[in-house]
Computed example of a mutant assay.
Amino acid sequence: MNPNNLEQDKTAKHRLISKVLSPALWLFVRSQVEQVSHLEVQIASSDRQILSGSIPRLSIFADRVVYKGLHFAKICLMGEGMQTNLRQAMRGQPLQLLEPMDVSGEATLQEMDLNASLKSDLLSSALTELLSKLAPNNNAVRGQIDWTKIAIAPELLLLQGNLVNSSHTTTITLKCGLQLSSGRELLLTQPQLQISSNSLWEQLEDHAIDLGSYVNLKELTLQSGQIVCRGSITVMP
């Protein structure tokens, strides 16, 4: 085989990745998030696999990400078995995921990220619902809660908010441990609730949070000022 032909094939493959696939994947990932300060996409695939729309391995590195109102300091992901409509994308159509894809990696959430995320309905509503499940018989925590602060210490979470009703505002403080119960479940351990800063702490029962069948966490670490989680998730088309 002519060495020049081999070199031309390599050049064509590089051109296909750099001019078509890489920008299309970058735009696809970018379209899934609301904000990102830095985004890098790396591809491992042969020319035949690329032309068929198959990407055996995809790596994503992103900083300062906002997804559905949730803020992340850093995300490092690796996806395997990605099937796309690359031929249609080469004709100008948006790149799409055609089959479920397993994605593994690591995400870091800092205190500032979680506090910024409190502005999202997704997190604030989830915390209010969680409190109602932790204290189902406590009528003092019924109503709309304006969550104002999350603090992270080693093996400890502290959440504060204001319960607003027609006559006055009451400060609510919830503190608890957080650990993995299984790959798809988080466990709040030894939760305690304080209604107003002058009252005693109420001891609540441990509570499990089911993250869903698509999630498989391997590690969850609460450090001073941040949470680091490692695991995998199945991304659906």
Rank of each mutant, 00 (worst) to 15 (best):
F28S: 13
F28K: 15
F28C: 11
F28I: 14
V29R: 05
V29I: 15
V29P: 00
R30D: 03
R30F: 02
R30C: 02
S31L: 07
Q32Y: 02
Q32T: 14
V33N: 12
E34N: 04
Q35I: 05
Q35C: 05
Q35K: 13
V36P: 01
V36D: 05
S37H: 14
H38L: 10
L39H: 02
L39C: 04
E40P: 00
V41Y: 05
Q42E: 02
Q42K: 08
Q42I: 00
I43S: 06
I43H: 08
I43M: 05
A44W: 07
S45Y: 03
S46Q: 06
S46Y: 06
S46C: 05
D47V: 10
D47S: 14
D47A: 11
R48G: 00
R48A: 03
Q49P: 00
Q49L: 07
Q49R: 14
I50K: 14
I50T: 10
I50W: 07
L51C: 06
S52W: 05
G53F: 03
S54M: 06
P56V: 13
P56E: 09
L58D: 08
S59K: 15
S59C: 05
S59D: 14
I60Y: 04
F61S: 12
A62W: 06
A62S: 12
R64Q: 11
R64G: 00
R64Y: 00
R64M: 01
V65Q: 13
Y67F: 06
Y67E: 07
Y67S: 06
K68H: 10
K68Y: 05
H71L: 03
H71C: 07
H71G: 01
F72P: 00
F72M: 13
A73L: 01
A73R: 15
K74T: 08
K74P: 00
K74W: 02
K74N: 10
K74R: 15
I75M: 11
I75F: 04
C76E: 14
C76Y: 09
L77E: 04
L77W: 08
M78C: 04
M78T: 10
M78Q: 13
G79W: 10
E80W: 10
G81D: 08
M82W: 03
M82G: 02
M82E: 01
T84M: 08
T84S: 11
T84H: 07
N85G: 04
L86P: 00
R87A: 09
Q88V: 03
A89F: 02
A89L: 05
A89I: 02
R91L: 07
G92W: 12
Q93L: 12
Q93D: 07
P94D: 13
P94M: 12
L95H: 06
Q96R: 15
L97N: 09
L97Q: 11
L98G: 02
L98Q: 13
E99Y: 04
P100L: 14
M101N: 03
M101V: 10
D102P: 01
V103C: 10
V103W: 05
S104P: 00
S104N: 11
G105V: 08
G105L: 15
E106Y: 05
E106I: 09
A107S: 02
A107W: 01
T108R: 15
L109Q: 01
Q110V: 01
E111C: 08
M112E: 13
M112S: 11
D113T: 06
N115H: 02
A116G: 06
A116R: 15
A116L: 09
S117K: 11
S117R: 11
S117H: 02
L118F: 02
